[in-house]
Computed example of a mutant assay.
Amino acid sequence: MDRPQSDVLTATPFEIKGSMLTLLELRLHSTGLDAIAQHLAEKVAKAPGMFRSAPIVVDLQALGQVDGLDLAGLAAVMRGHGLVPVGVRGGSPALQAAAVEAGLGLLAAERRSETRPVPAKAAAAGGKTRVVTQPVRSGQQIYADGGDLVVLAAVSPGAEVLADGNIHVYGPLRGRALAGAHGDRTARIFCQCLEAELVSIAGHYRLFEELDPALRGHAVQVFEDGDNLMLQPL
């Protein structure tokens, strides 16, 4: 007897594939849970829609081998603000064990070069510039794998544009723009009209509410200078 077509289509119940996901990072510089909770509450209050049900990673790398952090308590605080903690990056063996016990995953440590920065175009080696001529609608994600991204139209609120290299937006930028998506800290964002929900270089981000009001609606470039995310008029 022939198997029903539906059974054939579902013979393999799932497949596991790599994907390019955008995750917020909570990069810790201290272990004081009360201070972290207060500062997080202030951040969420400025942009509640930005953080609602957003997956987030706790970056422990700056803490070195410090063990005194209540990870289960921190995860509870984040969930209380509507965030979804999914894992930790780095940290001491004791903190990684605590993360597993708290139901969090372990992510590979971020590789940061201690030598002279690689020129921005090096990130695009082997990758082509991706050019988008149509508006990027809410809910869409456009990614330039291994190269730069050029958008000749508007990026709507709720839309997301990512690139391993630089991002150029020639219409209003109202959604999220994440350049240097795989860690290139020399990448830049260039836009003709800055109204972004979020801009990010190599995971270092700034929210709309944190942008200088004098820059909103104007042509701006975004880049990293040391550990600072800089926004300057073009």
Rank of each mutant, 00 (worst) to 15 (best):
L83Q: 08
L28K: 07
L69W: 09
V136A: 00
D7G: 07
K43W: 10
P93G: 01
R174Y: 01
A179Q: 08
L63K: 03
G226A: 14
A214I: 02
L23M: 07
C193K: 08
I189S: 03
Q140C: 01
P13F: 07
H182I: 14
L28S: 03
F223M: 06
L74G: 08
V161W: 05
Q140P: 03
V66F: 02
A37F: 07
D34S: 12
L9Q: 04
L24A: 15
G171V: 03
F14S: 12
K128N: 14
G82V: 06
G91E: 01
D70F: 08
V136Q: 00
E209D: 14
G147K: 07
S6K: 04
K121S: 10
I16L: 15
T12W: 05
P93K: 05
A163T: 02
F51C: 00
T129N: 02
E209I: 03
Q140A: 15
E42T: 09
K121Y: 09
E160C: 03
R216K: 13
Q61C: 14
E210P: 03
T186D: 10
G73P: 06
P55C: 11
R137H: 08
L9Y: 06
K121I: 02
V100K: 14
L23V: 07
A125V: 14
K121V: 04
G147W: 10
E15W: 07
V132W: 00
D145S: 15
G80N: 09
I189P: 04
A35Q: 13
A181M: 08
P172N: 04
M78V: 12
Q192K: 13
L231S: 03
P157D: 07
C193N: 08
V155Q: 01
A144M: 04
F51R: 03
P13W: 07
V131A: 04
G91K: 04
